[in-house]
Design a binder for these strands. Structure first.
Length: 470
RNA sequence: GACCCCGUCGUCUAGCCUGGCCCAGGACGCGACCCUUUCAAGGUCGAGAUCGCGGGUUCGAAUCCCGCCGGGGUCACCA
Protein backbone atom coordinates (compact mmCIF):
# COMPACT_ATOMS: atom_id res chain seq x y z
CA UNK A 1 0.00 0.00 0.00
CA UNK A 2 1.22 3.48 -0.83
CA UNK A 3 1.95 5.92 1.94
CA UNK A 4 -0.90 8.38 2.40
CA UNK A 5 -0.38 11.66 0.61
CA UNK A 6 0.58 14.49 2.93
CA UNK A 7 1.12 17.99 1.63
CA UNK A 8 1.64 21.30 3.32
CA UNK A 9 1.29 25.00 2.75
CA UNK A 10 3.93 26.91 4.67
CA UNK A 11 3.50 30.66 4.48
CA UNK A 12 5.67 33.04 6.42
CA UNK A 13 3.42 35.48 8.26
CA UNK A 14 5.11 38.63 7.08
CA UNK A 15 2.11 39.95 5.19
CA UNK A 16 -1.31 39.13 3.83
CA UNK A 17 -1.95 36.03 1.75
CA UNK A 18 -1.44 37.09 -1.85
CA UNK A 19 -2.77 35.43 -4.97
CA UNK A 20 0.43 33.52 -5.67
CA UNK A 21 0.45 32.03 -2.21
CA UNK A 22 -3.24 31.30 -2.45
CA UNK A 23 -2.72 29.39 -5.67
CA UNK A 24 0.06 27.35 -4.10
CA UNK A 25 -2.21 26.65 -1.14
CA UNK A 26 -5.01 25.64 -3.50
CA UNK A 27 -2.82 23.25 -5.47
CA UNK A 28 -1.69 21.64 -2.22
CA UNK A 29 -5.22 21.43 -0.93
CA UNK A 30 -6.51 19.92 -4.18
CA UNK A 31 -3.71 17.37 -4.16
CA UNK A 32 -4.60 16.36 -0.61
CA UNK A 33 -8.31 16.14 -1.30
CA UNK A 34 -7.86 14.36 -4.61
CA UNK A 35 -5.84 11.62 -2.96
CA UNK A 36 -7.78 11.61 0.27
CA UNK A 37 -4.62 12.70 2.04
CA UNK A 38 -3.82 15.37 4.59
CA UNK A 39 -3.33 19.10 4.10
CA UNK A 40 -1.05 20.64 6.70
CA UNK A 41 -0.78 24.34 7.44
CA UNK A 42 2.56 25.32 8.87
CA UNK A 43 3.67 28.78 9.85
CA UNK A 44 7.23 29.69 8.98
CA UNK A 45 7.80 32.37 11.54
CA UNK A 46 11.51 32.11 12.14
CA UNK A 47 11.82 35.68 10.97
CA UNK A 48 10.82 37.09 14.33
CA UNK A 49 11.13 40.69 13.30
CA UNK A 50 8.66 40.56 10.44
CA UNK A 51 6.30 37.82 11.59
CA UNK A 52 3.20 38.86 13.48
CA UNK A 53 0.15 37.17 14.95
CA UNK A 54 -1.99 39.60 13.00
CA UNK A 55 -0.58 38.25 9.77
CA UNK A 56 -1.21 34.69 10.87
CA UNK A 57 -4.81 35.60 11.61
CA UNK A 58 -5.07 37.30 8.24
CA UNK A 59 -3.73 34.27 6.38
CA UNK A 60 -6.05 31.96 8.27
CA UNK A 61 -8.94 34.23 7.42
CA UNK A 62 -8.07 34.26 3.72
CA UNK A 63 -7.71 30.48 3.53
CA UNK A 64 -11.00 30.08 5.33
CA UNK A 65 -12.73 32.42 2.94
CA UNK A 66 -11.40 30.39 0.02
CA UNK A 67 -12.69 27.25 1.71
CA UNK A 68 -9.25 25.65 1.96
CA UNK A 69 -9.53 23.82 5.23
CA UNK A 70 -6.52 22.14 6.77
CA UNK A 71 -6.34 18.82 8.57
CA UNK A 72 -3.42 19.82 10.73
CA UNK A 73 -2.12 23.20 11.77
CA UNK A 74 -3.00 26.24 13.84
CA UNK A 75 -4.54 26.86 16.23
CA UNK A 76 -3.19 23.46 17.33
CA UNK A 77 0.30 23.83 18.80
CA UNK A 78 3.40 22.52 17.08
CA UNK A 79 2.87 24.02 13.65
CA UNK A 80 4.89 27.17 14.07
CA UNK A 81 8.60 27.00 13.57
CA UNK A 82 9.25 29.03 16.67
CA UNK A 83 7.66 26.19 18.64
CA UNK A 84 9.92 23.61 17.05
CA UNK A 85 13.40 24.84 17.94
CA UNK A 86 14.16 21.69 19.95
CA UNK A 87 13.48 19.50 16.95
CA UNK A 88 15.89 21.47 14.78
CA UNK A 89 18.53 21.32 17.47
CA UNK A 90 18.23 17.55 17.72
CA UNK A 91 18.58 17.13 13.97
CA UNK A 92 21.57 19.44 13.89
CA UNK A 93 23.24 17.31 16.53
CA UNK A 94 22.47 14.19 14.57
CA UNK A 95 24.18 15.60 11.50
CA UNK A 96 27.16 16.73 13.53
CA UNK A 97 27.50 13.33 15.19
CA UNK A 98 27.26 11.58 11.85
CA UNK A 99 30.01 13.77 10.47
CA UNK A 100 27.69 15.24 7.85
CA UNK A 101 27.95 18.74 9.26
CA UNK A 102 30.72 20.79 10.78
CA UNK A 103 31.30 24.03 12.59
CA UNK A 104 32.75 27.01 10.82
CA UNK A 105 34.15 30.16 12.35
CA UNK A 106 34.99 32.06 9.22
CA UNK A 107 34.31 35.75 9.70
CA UNK A 108 31.31 37.04 7.80
CA UNK A 109 33.44 39.87 6.43
CA UNK A 110 35.92 37.38 5.01
CA UNK A 111 33.07 35.37 3.46
CA UNK A 112 31.74 38.54 1.99
CA UNK A 113 35.11 39.31 0.45
CA UNK A 114 35.21 35.86 -1.13
CA UNK A 115 31.71 36.28 -2.41
CA UNK A 116 32.68 39.51 -4.12
CA UNK A 117 35.73 37.87 -5.64
CA UNK A 118 33.74 34.93 -6.96
CA UNK A 119 31.24 37.26 -8.47
CA UNK A 120 34.04 39.18 -10.06
CA UNK A 121 35.40 36.01 -11.65
CA UNK A 122 31.96 35.25 -12.98
CA UNK A 123 31.28 32.29 -10.74
CA UNK A 124 28.59 31.27 -8.32
CA UNK A 125 29.86 31.81 -4.80
CA UNK A 126 30.71 28.60 -3.07
CA UNK A 127 32.07 28.33 0.47
CA UNK A 128 35.74 27.35 0.38
CA UNK A 129 35.40 24.56 2.91
CA UNK A 130 38.19 26.00 4.99
CA UNK A 131 36.70 24.78 8.28
CA UNK A 132 35.56 21.44 6.97
CA UNK A 133 38.32 19.40 8.56
CA UNK A 134 39.18 21.64 11.46
CA UNK A 135 36.85 19.82 13.87
CA UNK A 136 35.78 23.03 15.53
CA UNK A 137 33.49 22.85 18.55
CA UNK A 138 31.50 25.96 17.90
CA UNK A 139 30.43 28.43 15.24
CA UNK A 140 27.95 28.25 12.42
CA UNK A 141 27.00 24.72 11.47
CA UNK A 142 27.50 23.86 7.82
CA UNK A 143 26.29 20.87 5.83
CA UNK A 144 29.13 18.93 4.22
CA UNK A 145 28.20 18.43 0.61
CA UNK A 146 29.74 15.74 -1.58
CA UNK A 147 32.23 17.71 -3.69
CA UNK A 148 31.73 15.68 -6.84
CA UNK A 149 28.65 14.57 -8.68
CA UNK A 150 25.29 16.10 -9.20
CA UNK A 151 21.88 16.09 -7.59
CA UNK A 152 18.77 15.67 -9.65
CA UNK A 153 15.49 17.20 -8.61
CA UNK A 154 12.81 15.01 -10.11
CA UNK A 155 10.19 17.69 -10.37
CA UNK A 156 6.59 16.67 -11.05
CA UNK A 157 6.04 19.77 -13.15
CA UNK A 158 9.44 20.40 -14.72
CA UNK A 159 10.77 16.90 -15.04
CA UNK A 160 14.33 16.09 -13.95
CA UNK A 161 16.49 19.14 -13.21
CA UNK A 162 20.18 18.54 -12.66
CA UNK A 163 22.46 20.59 -10.42
CA UNK A 164 26.21 19.99 -10.38
CA UNK A 165 27.63 19.88 -6.88
CA UNK A 166 30.29 22.29 -8.07
CA UNK A 167 27.52 24.88 -8.08
CA UNK A 168 26.43 24.11 -4.55
CA UNK A 169 28.22 24.97 -1.35
CA UNK A 170 28.37 23.84 2.26
CA UNK A 171 25.45 25.94 3.33
CA UNK A 172 24.66 27.01 6.85
CA UNK A 173 22.18 24.93 8.82
CA UNK A 174 22.48 26.70 12.14
CA UNK A 175 23.77 30.21 12.72
CA UNK A 176 26.47 31.06 15.23
CA UNK A 177 23.76 32.28 17.58
CA UNK A 178 22.16 28.84 17.50
CA UNK A 179 19.13 29.70 15.38
CA UNK A 180 18.37 27.39 12.46
CA UNK A 181 18.19 28.76 8.93
CA UNK A 182 15.13 28.56 6.75
CA UNK A 183 16.41 25.83 4.43
CA UNK A 184 17.22 23.62 7.37
CA UNK A 185 13.89 24.19 9.09
CA UNK A 186 12.01 23.33 5.93
CA UNK A 187 13.77 20.02 5.57
CA UNK A 188 13.36 19.07 9.21
CA UNK A 189 9.72 20.13 9.23
CA UNK A 190 8.86 18.30 6.04
CA UNK A 191 10.60 15.20 7.30
CA UNK A 192 9.04 15.19 10.74
CA UNK A 193 5.61 16.01 9.38
CA UNK A 194 6.02 13.17 6.88
CA UNK A 195 5.29 15.35 3.91
CA UNK A 196 5.16 13.27 0.75
CA UNK A 197 4.77 16.02 -1.84
CA UNK A 198 6.38 19.41 -1.56
CA UNK A 199 4.35 21.75 -3.74
CA UNK A 200 5.65 25.29 -3.61
CA UNK A 201 6.70 28.29 -5.65
CA UNK A 202 9.17 28.13 -8.45
CA UNK A 203 11.49 30.46 -6.55
CA UNK A 204 12.47 27.49 -4.38
CA UNK A 205 13.66 25.28 -7.20
CA UNK A 206 17.25 26.45 -6.86
CA UNK A 207 17.21 25.67 -3.14
CA UNK A 208 15.93 22.17 -3.68
CA UNK A 209 19.23 20.34 -4.41
CA UNK A 210 20.68 21.76 -1.18
CA UNK A 211 17.67 20.45 0.67
CA UNK A 212 17.78 17.05 -0.99
CA UNK A 213 21.39 16.69 0.13
CA UNK A 214 20.24 17.48 3.64
CA UNK A 215 17.52 14.80 3.53
CA UNK A 216 20.13 12.32 2.42
CA UNK A 217 22.61 13.33 5.11
CA UNK A 218 19.83 12.87 7.64
CA UNK A 219 19.07 9.46 6.19
CA UNK A 220 15.49 10.29 5.27
CA UNK A 221 13.52 9.55 2.13
CA UNK A 222 13.27 12.48 -0.24
CA UNK A 223 9.69 13.65 -0.94
CA UNK A 224 8.33 14.39 -4.39
CA UNK A 225 8.68 17.99 -5.50
CA UNK A 226 6.50 20.19 -7.67
CA UNK A 227 7.53 23.76 -8.33
CA UNK A 228 4.65 25.90 -9.43
CA UNK A 229 5.37 28.84 -11.70
CA UNK A 230 5.17 32.36 -10.51
CA UNK A 231 2.20 34.64 -11.05
CA UNK A 232 3.22 37.64 -13.11
CA UNK A 233 2.01 41.19 -13.50
CA UNK A 234 1.01 42.67 -16.85
CA UNK A 235 4.68 43.52 -17.54
CA UNK A 236 5.69 39.90 -16.98
CA UNK A 237 7.62 40.66 -13.84
CA UNK A 238 6.72 38.96 -10.59
CA UNK A 239 3.31 40.13 -9.41
CA UNK A 240 3.57 42.74 -6.70
CA UNK A 241 1.62 45.55 -5.11
CA UNK A 242 2.57 47.96 -7.82
CA UNK A 243 0.49 45.85 -10.21
CA UNK A 244 -2.59 46.61 -8.13
CA UNK A 245 -4.44 44.55 -5.57
CA UNK A 246 -2.79 41.22 -4.83
CA UNK A 247 -4.00 40.23 -1.39
CA UNK A 248 -6.84 37.74 -1.20
CA UNK A 249 -8.90 39.92 1.09
CA UNK A 250 -8.60 42.80 -1.37
CA UNK A 251 -10.51 40.67 -3.86
CA UNK A 252 -12.97 39.56 -1.23
CA UNK A 253 -13.57 43.19 -0.29
CA UNK A 254 -13.97 44.09 -3.96
CA UNK A 255 -16.89 41.66 -3.95
CA UNK A 256 -15.33 38.84 -5.96
CA UNK A 257 -17.01 35.54 -5.12
CA UNK A 258 -14.79 33.00 -3.39
CA UNK A 259 -15.82 30.25 -5.83
CA UNK A 260 -14.68 32.46 -8.70
CA UNK A 261 -11.36 33.14 -7.04
CA UNK A 262 -10.75 29.43 -6.54
CA UNK A 263 -11.84 28.62 -10.08
CA UNK A 264 -9.65 31.36 -11.51
CA UNK A 265 -6.59 30.39 -9.50
CA UNK A 266 -7.01 26.77 -10.48
CA UNK A 267 -7.26 27.62 -14.16
CA UNK A 268 -4.18 29.80 -13.95
CA UNK A 269 -1.65 27.23 -15.06
CA UNK A 270 -3.90 24.21 -14.91
CA UNK A 271 -6.49 23.09 -17.42
CA UNK A 272 -8.69 20.22 -18.33
CA UNK A 273 -9.59 20.26 -21.99
CA UNK A 274 -11.70 23.24 -22.94
CA UNK A 275 -13.53 23.47 -19.65
CA UNK A 276 -13.46 26.82 -17.90
CA UNK A 277 -15.91 26.49 -15.05
CA UNK A 278 -15.24 23.90 -12.40
CA UNK A 279 -17.16 23.17 -9.26
CA UNK A 280 -15.09 22.39 -6.20
CA UNK A 281 -15.97 18.73 -6.56
CA UNK A 282 -14.87 18.66 -10.18
CA UNK A 283 -11.62 20.32 -9.26
CA UNK A 284 -10.94 17.71 -6.61
CA UNK A 285 -11.80 14.89 -8.97
CA UNK A 286 -9.84 16.18 -11.95
CA UNK A 287 -6.87 18.02 -10.52
CA UNK A 288 -3.44 16.48 -10.80
CA UNK A 289 -0.33 18.47 -9.98
CA UNK A 290 1.38 16.84 -12.97
CA UNK A 291 -0.95 18.71 -15.30
CA UNK A 292 0.09 22.13 -14.06
CA UNK A 293 1.89 24.18 -16.71
CA UNK A 294 5.52 25.06 -16.15
CA UNK A 295 5.41 28.56 -17.58
CA UNK A 296 4.62 31.71 -15.67
CA UNK A 297 1.15 33.21 -15.98
CA UNK A 298 -0.01 36.80 -15.97
CA UNK A 299 -2.77 37.60 -13.53
CA UNK A 300 -5.80 38.76 -15.50
CA UNK A 301 -8.32 40.54 -13.29
CA UNK A 302 -10.75 40.84 -16.20
CA UNK A 303 -11.10 37.11 -16.55
CA UNK A 304 -11.45 36.77 -12.80
CA UNK A 305 -14.36 39.20 -12.97
CA UNK A 306 -15.93 37.24 -15.78
CA UNK A 307 -15.82 34.15 -13.61
CA UNK A 308 -17.21 36.03 -10.66
CA UNK A 309 -20.03 37.17 -12.92
CA UNK A 310 -20.67 33.60 -14.02
CA UNK A 311 -21.00 32.46 -10.42
CA UNK A 312 -23.08 35.47 -9.46
CA UNK A 313 -25.58 34.77 -12.24
CA UNK A 314 -26.20 31.21 -11.18
CA UNK A 315 -26.34 31.81 -7.46
CA UNK A 316 -29.74 31.77 -5.76
CA UNK A 317 -31.02 35.12 -4.59
CA UNK A 318 -31.27 33.90 -1.02
CA UNK A 319 -27.62 32.88 -1.01
CA UNK A 320 -26.65 36.25 -2.43
CA UNK A 321 -28.75 38.06 0.14
CA UNK A 322 -26.60 36.58 2.88
CA UNK A 323 -23.36 37.51 1.14
CA UNK A 324 -24.43 40.99 0.22
CA UNK A 325 -25.19 42.35 3.68
CA UNK A 326 -21.69 43.56 4.57
CA UNK A 327 -21.53 45.25 1.19
CA UNK A 328 -24.81 47.02 1.81
CA UNK A 329 -23.42 48.34 5.05
CA UNK A 330 -20.27 49.38 3.24
CA UNK A 331 -22.35 51.35 0.77
CA UNK A 332 -24.23 53.03 3.60
CA UNK A 333 -27.50 51.34 2.75
CA UNK A 334 -29.95 49.82 5.20
CA UNK A 335 -30.28 46.04 5.08
CA UNK A 336 -33.96 45.32 4.45
CA UNK A 337 -35.92 43.72 7.23
CA UNK A 338 -37.43 41.19 4.87
CA UNK A 339 -34.82 38.67 3.68
CA UNK A 340 -37.13 37.37 0.97
CA UNK A 341 -37.37 40.84 -0.52
CA UNK A 342 -33.59 41.21 -0.47
CA UNK A 343 -33.28 37.85 -2.20
CA UNK A 344 -35.75 38.97 -4.87
CA UNK A 345 -33.83 42.19 -5.33
CA UNK A 346 -30.58 40.27 -5.76
CA UNK A 347 -32.22 38.07 -8.33
CA UNK A 348 -33.03 41.08 -10.48
CA UNK A 349 -29.52 42.52 -10.49
CA UNK A 350 -27.25 39.49 -10.30
CA UNK A 351 -26.82 39.07 -14.03
CA UNK A 352 -25.89 42.75 -14.29
CA UNK A 353 -23.03 42.67 -11.81
CA UNK A 354 -19.60 41.11 -11.83
CA UNK A 355 -18.96 41.61 -8.14
CA UNK A 356 -20.97 42.04 -4.97
CA UNK A 357 -19.87 45.66 -4.84
CA UNK A 358 -21.28 46.20 -8.29
CA UNK A 359 -24.40 44.29 -7.38
CA UNK A 360 -25.08 46.66 -4.51
CA UNK A 361 -24.53 49.67 -6.74
CA UNK A 362 -26.95 48.30 -9.29
CA UNK A 363 -29.48 47.72 -6.55
CA UNK A 364 -28.97 51.05 -4.84
CA UNK A 365 -32.22 52.55 -6.13
CA UNK A 366 -34.24 49.87 -4.36
CA UNK A 367 -33.06 51.28 -1.05
CA UNK A 368 -33.09 54.98 -1.62
CA UNK A 369 -34.89 57.23 -4.10
CA UNK A 370 -32.82 58.72 -6.89
CA UNK A 371 -30.85 61.73 -5.70
CA UNK A 372 -31.00 63.22 -9.18
CA UNK A 373 -32.21 62.35 -12.65
CA UNK A 374 -29.71 61.59 -15.34
CA UNK A 375 -29.46 64.94 -17.14
CA UNK A 376 -29.76 63.83 -20.71
CA UNK A 377 -32.62 61.46 -20.02
CA UNK A 378 -34.44 64.06 -17.96
CA UNK A 379 -34.31 66.38 -20.93
CA UNK A 380 -35.87 63.74 -23.12
CA UNK A 381 -38.51 62.37 -20.79
CA UNK A 382 -39.42 64.99 -18.20
CA UNK A 383 -41.36 67.07 -20.65
CA UNK A 384 -45.00 68.22 -20.70
CA UNK A 385 -45.84 65.05 -22.59
CA UNK A 386 -43.86 63.06 -20.05
CA UNK A 387 -45.83 64.73 -17.28
CA UNK A 388 -49.08 63.72 -18.93
CA UNK A 389 -47.97 60.12 -19.21
CA UNK A 390 -46.82 60.03 -15.60
CA UNK A 391 -50.21 61.34 -14.55
CA UNK A 392 -51.91 58.60 -16.48
CA UNK A 393 -49.57 55.99 -15.01
CA UNK A 394 -50.28 57.20 -11.49
CA UNK A 395 -53.97 57.12 -12.18
CA UNK A 396 -53.94 53.62 -13.62
CA UNK A 397 -51.58 51.76 -11.37
CA UNK A 398 -53.38 52.07 -8.02
CA UNK A 399 -56.46 50.58 -9.62
CA UNK A 400 -54.75 47.25 -9.87
CA UNK A 401 -55.40 45.14 -6.81
CA UNK A 402 -52.43 42.81 -6.94
CA UNK A 403 -49.02 44.50 -7.11
CA UNK A 404 -47.19 41.91 -9.13
CA UNK A 405 -45.00 42.20 -12.23
CA UNK A 406 -47.59 40.49 -14.39
CA UNK A 407 -50.42 42.76 -13.31
CA UNK A 408 -48.27 45.84 -13.63
CA UNK A 409 -47.12 44.80 -17.06
CA UNK A 410 -50.71 44.39 -18.16
CA UNK A 411 -51.51 47.91 -17.00
CA UNK A 412 -48.52 49.32 -18.87
CA UNK A 413 -49.30 47.47 -22.07
CA UNK A 414 -52.93 48.54 -22.00
CA UNK A 415 -52.03 52.16 -21.44
CA UNK A 416 -49.37 52.11 -24.14
CA UNK A 417 -51.87 50.68 -26.59
CA UNK A 418 -54.44 53.30 -25.70
CA UNK A 419 -51.96 56.08 -26.20
CA UNK A 420 -50.66 54.56 -29.41
CA UNK A 421 -47.20 54.29 -27.84
CA UNK A 422 -44.59 51.62 -27.82
CA UNK A 423 -43.93 49.98 -24.49
CA UNK A 424 -40.44 51.39 -24.47
CA UNK A 425 -41.78 54.93 -24.27
CA UNK A 426 -43.48 54.23 -20.99
CA UNK A 427 -40.77 51.91 -19.74
CA UNK A 428 -37.91 54.36 -20.09
CA UNK A 429 -39.93 57.18 -18.63
CA UNK A 430 -40.74 55.02 -15.62
CA UNK A 431 -37.18 53.84 -15.30
CA UNK A 432 -35.99 57.39 -15.07
CA UNK A 433 -38.60 58.20 -12.46
CA UNK A 434 -37.95 55.16 -10.34
CA UNK A 435 -34.20 54.68 -10.63
CA UNK A 436 -32.91 58.05 -11.81
CA UNK A 437 -31.37 56.47 -14.87
CA UNK A 438 -32.19 54.61 -18.04
CA UNK A 439 -30.65 51.23 -17.26
CA UNK A 440 -32.17 48.87 -14.75
CA UNK A 441 -33.64 45.40 -14.33
CA UNK A 442 -36.97 44.75 -16.09
CA UNK A 443 -39.15 47.68 -15.19
CA UNK A 444 -42.16 45.66 -14.01
CA UNK A 445 -39.99 43.81 -11.53
CA UNK A 446 -38.67 47.12 -10.33
CA UNK A 447 -42.12 48.60 -9.88
CA UNK A 448 -43.29 45.50 -8.06
CA UNK A 449 -40.29 45.25 -5.75
CA UNK A 450 -40.36 48.91 -4.89
CA UNK A 451 -43.86 48.42 -3.54
CA UNK A 452 -47.00 50.24 -4.48
CA UNK A 453 -46.47 53.18 -2.18
CA UNK A 454 -42.85 53.89 -2.98
CA UNK A 455 -43.26 53.36 -6.71
CA UNK A 456 -46.16 55.78 -6.90
CA UNK A 457 -44.33 58.30 -4.76
CA UNK A 458 -41.39 58.27 -7.14
CA UNK A 459 -43.60 58.55 -10.20
CA UNK A 460 -45.28 61.59 -8.67
CA UNK A 461 -41.97 63.14 -7.77
CA UNK A 462 -40.81 62.77 -11.36
CA UNK A 463 -44.09 64.18 -12.52
CA UNK A 464 -43.46 67.23 -10.32
CA UNK A 465 -39.95 67.55 -11.72
CA UNK A 466 -41.41 67.55 -15.22
CA UNK A 467 -43.29 70.70 -14.27
CA UNK A 468 -46.47 72.05 -15.77
CA UNK A 469 -49.98 71.97 -14.32
CA UNK A 470 -51.26 68.75 -12.91
C1' G B 1 28.05 37.35 -13.88
C1' A B 2 27.26 31.88 -12.75
C1' C B 3 23.50 28.28 -12.28
C1' C B 4 18.36 26.98 -12.98
C1' C B 5 13.40 27.65 -15.04
C1' C B 6 10.31 29.58 -18.87
C1' G B 7 8.98 31.30 -24.25
C1' U B 8 1.73 28.92 -28.89
C1' C B 9 -3.66 34.75 -30.53
C1' G B 10 -3.30 41.12 -26.08
C1' U B 11 -4.29 37.43 -21.74
C1' C B 12 -5.26 32.14 -19.69
C1' U B 13 -4.54 27.78 -22.28
C1' A B 14 -5.13 22.84 -25.80
C1' G B 15 -1.78 20.43 -28.91
C1' C B 16 4.52 18.96 -27.84
C1' C B 17 6.18 12.93 -24.56
C1' U B 18 3.85 8.83 -28.94
C1' G B 19 6.05 14.18 -35.92
C1' G B 20 1.10 14.24 -40.63
C1' C B 21 -6.08 14.52 -37.97
C1' C B 22 -3.11 21.89 -36.71
C1' C B 23 -2.06 26.87 -43.10
C1' A B 24 -2.96 25.60 -34.78
C1' G B 25 -8.56 24.36 -31.05
C1' G B 26 -11.17 26.59 -26.63
C1' A B 27 -11.87 30.68 -23.11
C1' C B 28 -11.43 36.02 -21.46
C1' G B 29 -11.30 40.63 -23.78
C1' C B 30 -12.54 43.23 -28.49
C1' G B 31 -15.97 44.18 -33.00
C1' A B 32 -20.64 43.20 -35.69
C1' C B 33 -25.42 41.30 -35.96
C1' C B 34 -29.90 38.87 -33.79
C1' C B 35 -33.22 38.86 -29.61
C1' U B 36 -35.32 42.78 -26.59
C1' U B 37 -39.26 47.60 -22.19
C1' U B 38 -33.50 49.88 -21.02
C1' C B 39 -29.02 47.71 -19.35
C1' A B 40 -27.60 43.11 -18.98
C1' A B 41 -28.10 38.00 -20.07
C1' G B 42 -28.50 34.74 -24.27
C1' G B 43 -27.56 33.44 -29.55
C1' U B 44 -24.77 33.88 -34.24
C1' C B 45 -20.63 35.58 -36.80
C1' G B 46 -15.81 37.96 -37.03
C1' A B 47 -10.89 40.09 -36.35
C1' G B 48 -6.70 38.18 -33.67
C1' A B 49 -0.70 33.34 -33.27
C1' U B 50 4.45 32.99 -39.94
C1' C B 51 3.77 28.29 -32.59
C1' G B 52 10.68 33.67 -29.47
C1' C B 53 14.70 33.57 -33.56
C1' G B 54 18.16 30.80 -36.79
C1' G B 55 19.89 26.30 -38.53
C1' G B 56 19.37 20.95 -38.99
C1' U B 57 16.79 15.84 -39.20
C1' U B 58 12.48 14.22 -42.18
C1' C B 59 8.47 13.14 -47.85
C1' G B 60 6.46 16.17 -43.72
C1' A B 61 7.95 19.87 -37.40
C1' A B 62 4.42 23.94 -32.90
C1' U B 63 5.88 18.84 -32.06
C1' C B 64 12.73 15.70 -32.62
C1' C B 65 18.23 17.80 -32.49
C1' C B 66 21.77 22.04 -32.17
C1' G B 67 22.82 27.16 -31.52
C1' C B 68 21.16 31.86 -30.26
C1' C B 69 17.90 35.67 -28.19
C1' G B 70 14.40 37.42 -24.64
C1' G B 71 11.99 37.17 -19.77
C1' G B 72 12.08 35.36 -14.82
C1' G B 73 14.22 32.95 -10.46
C1' U B 74 18.33 31.61 -7.20
C1' C B 75 23.07 32.56 -5.69
C1' A B 76 22.94 35.53 2.51
C1' C B 77 25.03 33.34 9.55
C1' C B 78 16.73 36.56 4.85
C1' A B 79 12.54 33.66 4.44
Amino acid sequence: MMAPVRVRFAPSPTGHLHVGGARTALFNWLTARHHGGAFVLRIEDTDRSRSTDEHIASIVEALTWLGLDWDEGPPAPGYRQTERLEIYRAHAEQLLAAGRAYYCDCAPEELDRQRQAAHQRGETFRYSGRCRDRALGAGALRLAIPPAGATVVDDLIHGPVTFEHGQLDDWILVRTDGTPTYNFCVVVDDVTMQITHVIRGNDHLSNTPKQILCYEALGYAVPAFAHVSMILGADRSRLSKRHGATSIQAFRDAGILAEAMVNYLARLGWSHGDQEIFSREELIALFDIKDVASSGAIFDATKLEWLSHEYLKTKAGAALAALVEPFLRGAGLPAPADPARLAAICDTVKERAKTLVELVERARFYFEPPAAYEAKAAQTFLTPEGARRLDLLCARLPAERAWTPAVIEQAYRTLAAELGLKLVDLAQLSRLALTGGTASPPIFDVVALLGRQEALARLRRARAAAGGAS
